[in-house]
Amino acid sequence: MVFILNGRQMDVSAQPDETLLWVLREKLRLTGTKYGCGMAMCGSCTVHLDGQAVRSCVTRMQHVEGKRVTTIEGLSPDGTHPVQKAWLTEQVLQCGYCQSGQIMQAAALLAKTPKPTRAQIVQAMNGNLCRCGTYGRIVRAIERAARGEV
């Protein structure tokens, strides 16, 4: 099955009903994308599919074929995407498990809405759970990235 993964064409042997999450983690060994719930309730597995934030745990490979997938590993070549930098500046992360998904969700938001209001941030990020309770810092980091202060 052929698709573009982090800018490179990929040919992976996968069944149409396999989920993108486990193909990424087990077959392509990109473990930055996390399993959290398997039912699109937590957002830990968020990746970009043709630029849109999607939950890879419910995205079947048949819907990935021929498309562009970006994971946390490919968000920027050297980890310097403004969202990643803002995340470090604000020291957002605690355990960090949900944060690949949070960062991918935030990056998709800013790509579409470079200057989001607080309400837009809350709406965009509400599907991403964080058990450590880093929500306040997530909002601050997105606002920082939007201001370009990274």
């Binding site: 060994r29 473990t31 946390i72 980890g79 470090l88 960062i103």
Partner: peptide, 23 residues
């Protein structure tokens, strides 16, 4: 001093290894 946490740079790029990532 509020020194930056040492493992966070790996966590923002998906390189940090959690238990579930062991192989």
């Amino acid at each position: 001093k509020s020194l930056p946490r040492v493992e966070l740079p790996d966590k923002v790029v998906g390189r940090a290894k959690f238990g579930i990532d062991a192989e």
